[in-house]
């Protein structure tokens, strides 16, 4: 457990020392959501309708940005080898890496989303559901993304390839995440969507570190 905390602490510390990476992804999130009204037009009813989808797609793309670096630096400087050789099982350490990735790329989005939601005229209830859905959904994105990051580790064209692998797998998260907010706005209640999102999260939390570990071992051989 100590070792897992060390992995998280190190990644957070590193992110503090090079803040630009985290801030770039956040800025990207803001700018992408702000571009949609410019492309579609300022009509409030329409914007309110597309808001959940726009915010979720932007969140998806923003998490993709940092994904490729998830293991790349550790791979290049040999830290990954030391993680494999640690007495702590690699699956747990990978879980730590994923948790750190979420804290740096997912959590800021959760906190920032309501502010952007205001631009789209979402009411307080819808903003709450949006935050909750992102809170459940962004860890899912980090978990699934980790598998892709491990599979494409050290490959040429890794970044583009990574999005080709990972984005189709993000479809359920996108549907249930954006659907929760839409269902709330339509007055249907977001409970069903949110519980499905939570179920997917539980499933991914169980399987993704395992698959990521297997992929990392293959990449290191």
């Amino acid at each position: 457990m100590n070792a897992v905390l060390a992995v998280i602490r190190r990644d957070l510390l590193l992110a503090m020392r090079r803040k630009s990476e985290v801030l770039t992804a956040l800025f990207f999130f803001v700018i992408v959501t702000s571009l949609f009204p410019l492309g579609i037009g300022p009509e409030p009813a329409l914007l309110k309708k597309i808001a959940p989808g726009v915010l979720w797609v932007a969140a998806l793309l923003a998490t993709m940005l940092g994904l490729q670096r998830m293991f790349a630096a550790d791979h290049a400087d040999g830290t990954l080898e030391q993680m494999v050789l640690s007495p702590t099982p690699l699956g747990l350490l990978v879980g730590g890496k994923i948790a750190a990735h979420w804290m740096l790329s997912g959590l800021p989005l959760v906190l920032l989303a309501p502010v952007l939601g205001l631009q789209f005229d979402l009411d307080v209830g819808a903003l709450g559901v949006l935050m909750l859905a992102l809170l459940l959904g962004t860890p899912l994105l980090s978990l699934i993304g980790a598998i892709g990051a491990a599979l494409t580790l050290g490959l040429r064209g890794g970044g583009v390839l990574l999005s080709l692998l990972v984005l189709p797998l993000y479809v359920p998260a996108l549907i249930f995440g954006a659907g929760a907010v839409e269902a709330h706005i339509a007055g249907l209640g977001a409970g069903g969507h949110l519980s499905l999102l939570a179920a997917l999260l539980a499933l991914a939390a169980f399987f993704a570190p395992w698959a990521t570990t297997a992929a990392l071992r293959i990449a290191l051989e």
Partner: peptide
């Protein structure tokens, strides 16, 4: 490889 982080 050093397994040493440059920023730390």
């Amino acid at each position: 490889h050093g397994a040493v982080k440059e920023e730390l």
